[in-house]
């Protein structure tokens, strides 16, 4: 049973999140401003914090800063601010993920699960690294077992999708155009198959990403190609 602290000055939002996460089997603690949140963190064992940014007394970013002085508890920021610089700023302060309001409950749950799995099962990853294993962040591709896991959760891919993902992960950080992917995965020049590759990649994204429109691993560089983000 993991303890999740939900911090938001809007009681109804906290209430809704509580309902969703309780259904997933988490224990929920509630706070309505930053100071309350810090008090609860100091007196309870908390595994994850969902933190709103715009709050009275102490806002989310200040709370996060104070928290990071002595705690490594994972934090998901939850904010109506959806600008890139808001997200980057939050992540740079030490947040583990960022969700914009209004959020999709399924996405929230997926991100909570993902962050918790990464945080809790960090040590167990070592076992899987044996054999032909390629990984970035929480994404692991095992070429021997043909298994793909994201944050420890197995994902079912077709053979073609697996080959494309494996190729991109083997060369993580590098951008490949559709013809290059075709040549490398099929070992032949592909004419007319261009948007089939694009469809496959979209399918992969839909399977391995929590929000395929804002992918974390399989990035689309429009007009250039695709790449797997190299996460340490």
């Amino acid at each position: 049973m993991y303890n999740i602290l939900v911090v938001d000055d809007d009681k109804e939002i906290v209430g809704a999140i509580e309902i969703y996460l309780k259904k997933e089997g988490y224990n929920i603690l509630k706070a309505y401003n930053g100071e309350e949140a810090l008090d609860i963190v100091n007196s309870n064992e908390i595994h994850l914090i969902i933190l709103d940014i715009m709050m009275p007394k102490k806002d989310g970013l200040e709370t996060l800063e104070d928290l990071r002085k002595n705690k490594t508890i994972p934090v998901i920021l939850l904010s109506a601010k959806s600008e890139d610089y808001d997200k980057i700023g939050g992540l740079n302060l030490g947040a583990d993920d960022y969700i914009t309001k209004p959020f999709n409950p399924l996405e929230l749950i997926a991100r909570v699960n993902s962050v918790l799995r990464r945080y809790v099962s960090f040590g167990s990853l070592k076992k899987e690294e044996e054999g032909n294993v390629y990984k970035t962040g929480g994404l692991v591709v095992n070429d021997d077992t043909k298994k793909v896991t994201v944050d420890g959760k197995e994902v079912k891919l077709t053979a073609t999708e697996f080959n494309i993902l494996k190729f991109l992960l083997q060369n993580k950080g590098k951008v490949y155009s559709i013809p290059q992917i075709y040549e490398n995965v099929w070992n032949e020049e592909g004419f007319g198959a261009e948007n089939i590759i694009a469809v496959h990649i979209r399918h992969i994204r839909e399977k391995i990403e929590i929000n395929p429109k804002e992918p974390r691993y399989l990035k689309v560089i429009w007009g250039v190609g695709y790449k797997i983000e190299d996460e340490k």
């Binding site: 694009a198 979209r202 429009w222 007009g223």
Partner: peptide
Amino acid sequence: FESIDIKELFNQTIGEFKD
């Protein structure tokens, strides 16, 4: 700004919208 290949862009975009 970066250099964009129009063909690649349309292949990718059509792939996104194919379904």
